[in-house]
């Protein structure tokens, strides 16, 4: 089964995607991740203003039979969170790369982008 991967985004091996615009990184989970989790039922959002370090847990997403930590792909401050996914977590399943985005980080070190992988590499990494 082929999972959807979007060109132009960056990815992590823990299945987050990152869209970088200037120094703002928008973060969500990949199509692969939402499929593995199954029906997402609950998450508690991060508090805007929170400082996060790369690879640090930001939030936990719960599905019917799993729970998965979402880590910060880059360091910085959370500047905006998507509250719509809190009231209706199924949005993440339906549109993981769009309306199902999770939070935005104002990056403090652009160098960290080097550790992210591109769409092709991610697709290879998650080929079943």
């Amino acid at each position: 089964m082929a999972y959807k991967v979007i060109e132009g985004l960056y990815y992590t091996k823990s299945d987050e995607w990152v869209k970088v615009e200037d120094d703002i990184a928008t973060v969500g989970i990949t199509d692969y991740a939402q499929d593995k989790l199954g029906d997402i039922v609950y998450l508690e959002q991060a508090k805007p203003g929170t400082k996060v370090k790369v690879d640090e847990r930001v939030i936990t997403i719960e599905s019917v039979k799993a729970a998965s930590d979402i880590n910060a792909p880059v360091s910085g401050a959370i500047i905006e969170v998507n509250d719509k996914v809190v009231s209706d977590p199924s949005i993440i399943n339906k549109d993981p790369y769009g309306a199902g985005w999770l939070f935005k980080i104002k990056m403090e070190n652009m160098e960290e982008m080097k550790d992210l992988i591109d769409a092709n590499s991610y697709q290879d990494y998650r080929k079943e």
């Binding site: 039922v41 609950y42 019917v64 039979k65 799993a66 729970a67």
Partner: peptide, 12 residues
């Protein structure tokens, strides 16, 4: 509310 439980969350 199973995601609280040991078989899913283990040490958490």
């Amino acid at each position: 509310l199973r995601a609280r439980e040991q078989d899913i969350k283990r040490e958490k």
